[in-house]
């Protein structure tokens, strides 16, 4: 197994098109992208520009029409436990309780019942579902299902976490709480995170690096570091949002999203 710190993500000359009714529909144009281990990369872009496609290529759910996607130097051949995926639509198993959904990853890897129960409890607590652990997923609201899905992925402790608009369906309060929890986890564990969002503020606030994609076929048209506190010093969220650099980057990202011909 490769060491965590070797898990660099590389897209090299990646193009992808879907075949719809015999015709090729381009979704990704030319993606050259390197994500260093431990980066928190947020990806924004207009809807339909190919964000999900990029994530699914990295997840290993499909193969690029052209180019290579590699993790830790090895070409991606399929899904793997080191790349956890939070889907845009909650993908839970209705035959399992909320707790058993969260325990599933550790269970498949043969973690002892005691240890996985402990892990599950921790993450259920984190996403605020401790009181609902015995429920079935379909007995939860959409936002709760999404939180359960996040807990399930984090409980499996993947090196790379791929999240496709995970907070899109949540209310503002829950979203803010989970945002700071996610930042907490990222700081504590040094995981690599690729986080897709359609919210400019979320992209700039969460990411240590912000990417913007052009409308379909998607290309990366903006790539900026987005760190607003020097290492270790925790700046409160509203103070960060008041920083002139923060506001300026938000404007730049917004501009890039709305101007299809923007240059990186």
């Amino acid at each position: 197994m490769t060491d965590r710190h070797d898990r660099r993500v590389e897209f090299r000359g990646v193009r992808h098109h879907f075949t719809v009714g015999g015709a090729a529909v381009p979704a990704l144009d030319r993606i050259d992208l390197t994500i260093e281990p431990g980066e928190f990369v947020t990806l924004a872009g207009p809807s339909g520009c190919g964000k999900t496609t990029l994530l699914r290529l990295l997840a290993g759910f499909m193969t690029a029409s052209e180019g290579t996607v590699a993790v830790g130097g090895d070409a991606v051949r399929g899904p793997g436990e080191e790349r956890g995926v939070v889907f845009q639509q909650p993908t839970l198993y209705p035959w399992l309780s909320v707790r058993r959904n969260v325990e599933l990853g550790p269970k498949l890897r043969g973690v002892s019942a005691h240890d996985r129960a402990e892990t599950a409890s921790r993450y259920l607590e984190m996403v605020g579902l401790a009181d609902f652990e015995k429920h079935r997923p379909y007995e939860l609201s959409g936002g709760m299902q999404q939180r359960c899905q996040i807990a399930r992925v984090l409980a499996n402790e993947p090196d790379i976490v791929l999240m496709d608009e995970p907070f899109g369906a949540l209310d503002a309060l829950t979203r803010e709480r989970l945002q700071s929890e996610l930042l907490e986890i990222w700081r504590a564990t040094g995981r690599t995170i690729l986080f897709i969002t359609h919210s400019v503020d979320e992209a700039v606030f969460l990411g240590s690096r912000v990417l913007v994609m052009s409308p379909r076929p998607g290309r990366i048209v903006l790539d900026r570091p987005a760190v607003f506190s020097d290492g270790g010093v925790r700046v409160p969220a509203d103070e960060i949002r008041a920083l002139p650099e923060y506001v300026a980057l938000c404007d730049e990202v917004r501009g890039a999203i709305h101007a299809p011909t923007a240059v990186a």
Partner: peptide
């Protein structure tokens, strides 16, 4: 649903586990 299979494979399930789980 394909994503139900994708999800469990991303959790590290083997081919056999995909079938049973």
């Amino acid at each position: 649903r394909q994503d139900q299979v994708n999800a469990v494979r991303s959790l590290g399930a083997s081919r056999r586990q995909v079938l049973t789980a």
